[in-house]
Nucleic acid binder design. Structure first.
Length: 784
RNA sequence: GGAUCCAUAGCUCAGUUGGUAGAGCGCUUCGUUUACAUCGAAGAUGUCAGAGGUUCGAGUCCUCUUGGGUCCACCA
């Protein structure tokens, strides 16, 4: 043995030996005295398939591997299923960035081709994260590896959607969604943020109809003024009560606008009068629905003004705002401008871009009947959340939860299995598609045989050359007059079907003339099935044996996104929540105490630490970073400390071996029950060892990982290495002392193995033992 | 605005039924003892944010204040 422990030499070989031994697979693990134990199961929250390991992943794997190894040594049939996530939106963004480097964009591809290209991109990248999971020492069962786009996953998600559709739990409706024109997709309420900003608040003068009087209305969005048809005041506001029912003139459209009463208006804000823009404001939309007002869409999905905006059509929101203000100034319609108006703007959490509220048809999940049992499961303690104070995040969210929009305008994901009939089929039974709402479906597709003489469909992009495919968009009813159904189908990019369209839910194409929905499921809709699909619900033996799983371990920031949905789907499909415990680890912050982010440039890369200090030190250091589940700063010191500790253990073993060799004693006794002639001091150290075992068992049972590790650390270092081992040097009854020392070292290695698997396994291999099995499957010490 | 967590040694954090303040790192001094300098020995550093309350006794429980973090939130 070298005088220093070198993690680089052993890590790879040890992992291969573990994997080869079958220890990761429950069916190949040794059983505990033939007694049928309860299985212990964890499903790995899947990291991004095309990404790389970050500190949060490292902590997650460290904690999960700790629990897994502990239970495996205790003799429970233990299963940890690995997997990776397609990470819909993020991966698509990454891929598009690659395209841009090649001077291309996604608009040059039809949907099918784009999907295939991203698939290949992910396939060529996923070996990195898989390699890193191995490097971490994760004792996962690779034979059960699952990717979130595996055929059986897609098929399970499809059947859930079909079941929910059949039971009336999904519906299609127009909805005011949070749309990000930059990202090109909608975001759920959970996925948007509020950013405090200082903007201009414009006070606009409106003239009353048939009077010289006027009113003044405050707005931050003058660019929508020409769309407005109504204003509103609070019905009980004395100052504005007289205005109800009166009319004013829109300074841009010159149309008359009626002032209505609605209690959502805050009498204290601005002038107490609000202009209504139903298509682009949540409150206004609600009010418009209530009062049956027109909803005029003035901003399109690319963030530009529509034809409804008159002379500003085609201009960006920003430009329109500037120009409208100039126009209003010329008209003398601006009363004043508050230059320093502080308010909160909604932005998307992905890129921090401004959210444009839009009316779009969407698929929704009715959550009312799903959320009740999911809330009940946690409140009754059937699902136990640790740390306990995180529970309130869950219960609050479940109480407030409203219907869940699940459509995403992203290609990379599970395509919603809904089909719209748009083309004529040969066997059409007199169904006149031309008259149906389906002819109003908005299509964007890549036309390969574009005829330059066409003028009805709008060409939005591409060259005039006829051989080069161009992007064509329009209503399908009109497009079909110039293009064949097959050409549209094959070149299809996106489709927006109005809420009233007829549709069929089916996994595969139901017949001729159908186009499939181009939206994909919200990634949380499919990952909400994770414990089910990794266990191959509903028919497999795994599902029968391992469901519900034992612990779901993840970061607290996805309680709402993920944990709640898994519990909902688990109960909905099986009647049982998918796990018994939820353990939520804290967020690893950067050295400066802030959240790690690429934009702040404070990201700490785990690779460097694994390389320099070894996986064991990094894992244990992170676990020791916080004992309470709170967020914590990356604990660099603790990583050094545990690297040193690994070396200390290594040298304890070296000392033992050296003493044994020097003394020539070969008949050491193995278990303390066989040891004779123990001194009071020997009994004392054995007693302390047993107390350590007891407290480690207790602490691990309570998810107090840091304290458990700390307990072993101090016993092994302060009591064994610093004291007992020194005494051994001068003992006359060396045979007894070495027997005790070996017993203590071997037992200590067992206790430590779940925390620091590599160094303990490496030392174990060097120590003379009774059985020659690996440490990973050795029996956890029990105190009699 | 609502909710929640936090404030303990220079730094990062422990301190779970209330009972004499802890760890790691850092710092000071000393040490070539044959397991380990990724080591050993000795040592310094805290009105446990502030105020009040409950108690024989409070870092720990309650109230308020101050200062932070995070989540949620429709105010044009």
């Amino acid at each position: 043995m070298d005088s220093k422990f070198d993690h680089k030499i052993v890590e790879k070989d040890i992992y291969e030996a573990w994997e080869k031994s079958g220890a990761f697979q429950p069916s190949l693990q040794p059983t505990a005295n033939g007694i049928q134990q309860r299985p212990f199961t964890i499903v790995l929250p899947p990291p991004n398939a095309s990404g790389k390991m970050h500190m949060g992943n490292v902590l997650m794997i460290a904690i999960e591997d700790l629990m897994i190894r502990y239970h495996r040594m205790k003799g429970d049939p233990t299963l940890w299923i690995p997997g990776t996530d397609h990470a819909g939106f993020e991966t698509q963004i990454t891929y598009e960035r690659e395209l841009k480097k090649q001077g291309k964009s996604r608009f040059e591809f039809d949907r099918e081709t784009l999907y295939q290209n991203i698939w290949e991109f992910v396939q060529s990248n996923k070996s990195q994260i898989e390699g890193q999971i191995r490097q971490m020492g994760a004792s996962v069962d690779w034979s059960r590896y699952t990717f979130t786009l595996d055929p059986h996953v897609v098929s399970t998600v499809y059947s859930t959607f079909a079941k929910m559709h059949k039971e009336g739990l999904v519906y299609r409706d127009n909805y005011m969604v949070n749309y990000c024109p930059k990202c090109g997709t909608t975001f759920a309420d959970l996925e948007i943020m509020h950013e405090d900003r200082v903007d201009k608040l414009y006070y606009i003068k409106y003239k009353m109809v048939g009077s010289e009087d006027g009113v003044v209305v405050a707005t931050v969005r003058p660019e929508t003024i020409m769309l407005d048809t109504h204003m509103a005041v609070h019905p009980d506001n004395k100052k504005t009560k007289h205005l109800i029912g009166k009319k004013v003139i829109n300074p841009l459209s010159l149309k008359e606008m009626e002032i209505i009463a609605d209690s959502f208006v805050d009498p204290e804000f601005g002038t107490g009068i609000v202009k209504l823009t139903p298509a682009h404001d949540k409150n206004d939309y609600e009010a418009a629905k209530k009062h049956n007002l027109p909803v005029i869409i003035g901003i399109s999905m690319d963030g530009k003004m529509t034809s409804e905006a008159g002379k500003w059509a085609g201009k960006s929101v920003f430009t329109a705002r500037k120009e409208v203000v100039e126009e209003l100034q010329i008209l003398g319609a601006i009363d004043k401008i508050n230059e320093k108006y502080e308010h909160a703007v909604t932005v998307c959490y992905k890129g921090g871009h401004d959210i444009e509220p839009m009316i779009l048809p969407n698929w929704f999940v009715k959550v009312e009947s799903l959320k009740k049992p999911a809330l009940e499961a946690v409140e009754s303690g059937k699902v136990k959340i640790y740390p306990e104070w995180r529970k309130i995040t869950y219960t609050k969210w479940m109480e407030e939860m409203h219907d869940w929009p699940i459509s995403r305008q992203v290609v990379w994901g599970i395509r919603i299995p809904v089909w719209y009939k748009v083309g004529q089929s040969e066997n059409s039974e007199g169904q006149n598609v031309g008259k149906s709402e389906n002819q109003n479906i908005q299509i964007t597709f890549l036309a390969k045989n574009h005829k330059s003489s066409d003028h009805s469909p709008k060409i939005t992009q591409g060259s005039e050359l006829s051989h080069k495919p161009v992007v064509v968009s329009g209503r399908v009813g009109e497009l079909l007059q110039n293009y064949s159904f097959e050409e549209i189908r094959d070149g299809l990019q996106t489709l927006i079907a109005p809420a009233g369209c007829e549709s069929i839910v089916n996994e595969t194409c139901p017949g001729d003339g159908y186009l499939q929905e181009t939206d994909t499921f919200d990634t949380w809709f499919s990952s909400g099935h994770w414990p089910l699909v990794t266990l191959k619900y509903p028919e497999s033996e795994d599902f029968k044996k391992f469901y519900p799983t034992s612990v779901l371990e993840t970061g607290w920031e996805i309680i709402r996104f993920w944990v709640s949905r898994m519990i909902m789907f688990g109960i909905y499909l099986t009647g049982e929540p998918p796990f018994e415990y939820v353990y939520l680890h804290g967020m690893v912050r950067a050295a400066d105490g802030k959240k790690m982010s690429k934009s702040l440039g404070n990201v700490i890369n785990p690779d460097e630490y694994m390389e320099q200090y070894g996986v064991d030190a990094l894992r244990m250091g992170l676990i020791a970073g916080t004992a309470t589940g709170k967020d914590f700063s990356f604990p660099k010191d603790k990583i050094t400390a545990y690297r040193n500790f690994g070396n200390k253990l290594w040298n304890m073993a070296r000392f033992f071996l050296m003493m044994q060799e020097k003394s020539g004693i070969t008949n050491l006794k193995f278990s303390n029950s066989q040891m004779e002639g123990l001194t009071a001091r020997d009994n004392e150290i054995i007693k302390m060892l047993n107390e350590t075992i007891n407290s480690v068992d207790k602490l691990l049972g309570e998810f107090r990982f840091a304290e458990a590790g700390d307990t072993i650390y101090h016993f092994m270092w302060d009591e064994v290495a610093a004291k007992y081992l020194e005494e051994v040097k001068t003992r006359e009854d060396l045979g007894v002392a070495l027997s005790v020392l070996r017993h203590v070292i071997l037992t200590g290695l067992k206790l430590l193995h779940p925390f620091m698997p590599f160094v303990t396994e490496a030392i174990w291999k060097e120590m003379p033992r009774k059985h020659d099995e690996m440490l990973i499957i050795s029996k956890w010490p029990e105190v009699k």
